[in-house]
């Protein structure tokens, strides 16, 4: 029997409503949420600390600012002026103090608080991520569904094979290829910059292609597993129609695992669309962070990491909760 069906369809009375809410609130209990948030906080602190030491131990950003024809003492002067001459642990303590006071050190390039700079870019990344993820989930989900439930060999194998083949194509290569075909040859889309909704198509498509194989494979596997489950066999024995069987007893029960994968992909999107954003000049946080790394703008890199890590934690928390709501087995 499908677990979705175990939930009351509608609360007819107040008592029933409370019972229904309790059923939903289980994954949202303060203990559960508190534990997840604490874990998330530690993960964010760990990520920022690791990145801090990795950056500050491996180079001096002041050197990039030295004019080529400056006197030899200029590098030392700038290093001292910017505080990079102090031991890394000392710089870390200072940095932590600043962060706890909500006062991040200024971005080296922008000469301003890096938090608003990073947050300003988050919207563009979310926009691109939403398009890429939606496309990826729709196409990947359809391919997974067809490959698990298709009646012919063609529908079961061809779409999945194409998806698996796409998995072997690096994002940057697909992006360049899509630009060549859709922008250069066909002239349908702009090749450079984010020029309105049309400018979203190429990066969105490129991003989606990265999700399709994972979503398709996981969804297919989940569907196949559920198709062989006892409750499906029982339901089939009752003479239920194929379409209804799939809709009511198979698809819903296959979503939990798939949702977890989508959640991980969505988290990766926040910082992982670096390549796509860079190829298409998309003004998101991925492009900002990679450029910050290249320019050794350490304060900005750390804030980007912080934003991405927090986003990752929150998305995963949301996915866990959603998964638990959809599939109560996961609550335990």
């Amino acid at each position: 029997m499908a677990l979705l069906d175990a939930r009351p369809a509608a609360p007819p009375t107040l008592t029933a409503l409370v019972a229904w809410l309790r059923g939903l609130r289980l994954p949202l209990s303060p203990r559960y949420l508190g534990g997840r948030l604490l874990t998330g906080l530690v993960a964010v602190w760990g990520a920022v600390t690791l990145v801090f030491f990795a950056l500050y131990s491996t180079g001096n950003p002041a050197l990039l600012l030295v004019a080529p024809d400056a006197p030899p003492e200029e590098a030392e002067r700038l290093t001292r002026l910017m505080g990079f001459d102090r031991p890394v642990p000392e710089q870390y303590v200072t940095f932590l103090g600043q962060v706890l006071r909500g006062n991040f050190p200024d971005s080296i390039r922008y000469g301003a608080d890096p938090v608003p700079i990073a947050l300003e870019r988050l919207g563009a990344s979310l926009e691109l991520g939403a398009v890429g993820l939606t496309l990826g989930v729709l196409v990947g989900g359809t391919i997974g569904y067809l490959s698990a439930t298709g009646r012919s060999v063609w529908t079961r194998r061809v779409p999945l094979s194409i998806a698996v083949a796409l998995d072997g194509i690096p994002t940057f290569f697909f992006g360049i290829l899509a630009t060549l075909v859709l922008a250069v040859w066909l002239g349908w889309l702009p090749a450079t910059g984010s020029t309105g909704p049309l400018g979203l198509v190429l990066p969105g498509l490129t991003l989606a292609v990265a999700f399709v194989p994972a979503v398709a494979r996981v969804f297919r596997t989940a569907l196949v597993d559920v198709l062989h489950a006892d409750h499906v066999r029982t339901a089939r024995a009752t003479g239920i129609g194929r379409g209804r069987l799939l809709r009511r007893h198979v698809v819903g029960n296959s979503l939990g695992t798939t949702l977890n994968v989508v959640g991980i992909q969505a988290g990766v999107l926040l910082g992982g669309a670096v390549v796509t954003e860079s190829i298409f000049g998309w003004p998101g946080i991925g492009q900002l962070s990679i450029n910050a790394v290249q320019n050794r703008d350490y304060p900005l890199v750390i804030v980007c990491v912080l934003v991405i890590a927090v986003g990752f934690v929150l998305i995963n928390l949301l996915v866990d909760v959603l998964a638990a709501v959809i599939e109560p087995r996961l609550r335990s």
Binding site: I176, T179, L180, A183, V184, G187, P190, A191, T192, G193, S278, I279, G281
Partner: peptide, 19 residues
């Protein structure tokens, strides 16, 4: 002014007539 950091981007921009 548009920043196109890679060679492929610059060539594509020219081929698409966008520069």
């Amino acid at each position: 002014y548009t920043v196109l950091a890679s060679e492929a981007q610059r060539v594509a921009a020219i081929q698409a007539g966008e520069a």
